[in-house]
């Protein structure tokens, strides 16, 4: 109440919090999409990796490169899972699920495909993961009252990014 506010503004009052543990309303599926693109790129890089020769030095270089690509693929597939899980668990409400009844199934499939993308060197799996994350992003922006659009990404992976108009 405004009058209460002005009357007691100078008093040292206890605080009641109208939020949880984090700042309010900062959710965006963009990082999940970047991570999914990275999974694609690392899968491509592993597929393209080759040794310059049969020498032990070149073999070591190849192993080293593949180890690094695999590590990044692993980390970013996990990042996809984390980003999606946080939005799904903290942002989405039951009324959103009523409006988009396939949301839970979509998240379940993202988790499964992200695990598959970690386990395998499979470009189709990686592309499917991105597609599912983009479907998730489209639902997210619709719940925000925004019109989602797919635009060409500027990444070496090609493909698209979901943003809103």
């Amino acid at each position: 109440m405004k009058s209460l506010g002005s009357l007691f503004n100078s008093l040292q009052l206890q605080t009641a919090y109208a939020h949880c543990d984090i700042p309010c309303g900062i959710y965006d599926p963009y990082p999940a999409q970047i991570a999914a693109h990275t999974v694609i790129r690392m899968t491509q890089s592993i597929g393209e990796a080759h040794a310059e020769s049969d020498s032990s030095e070149d073999q070591k270089k190849l192993m080293h490169a593949i180890a690094r690509y695999t590590r990044v693929k692993e980390d970013h597939a996990e990042l996809v899972k984390r980003e999606i899980r946080v939005i799904w668990g903290d942002y989405f409400k039951p009324e959103h699920v009523k409006k988009f009844p396939k949301l839970h199934e979509l998240v379940f499939n993202i988790m499964k495909h992200a695990s598959k993308a970690k386990q395998e060197v499979n470009i189709e799996e990686a592309k499917e993961l991105l597609e599912l994350v983009q479907q998730f992003a489209e639902i997210f922006w619709k719940t925000k009252g925004k019109e989602p659009v797919r635009v060409a990404s500027a990444y070496p992976t090609g493909g698209e990014m979901v943003i809103y108009k």
Partner: peptide, 20 residues
């Protein structure tokens, strides 16, 4: 008791910084 509100989750009913 009077309390000062910190946060936006109860808006527009209760605004950040208001007293309840």
């Amino acid at each position: 008791s009077l309390l000062k509100i910190s946060g936006h989750s109860m808006e527009p009913t209760i605004k950040n910084g208001s007293i309840v």
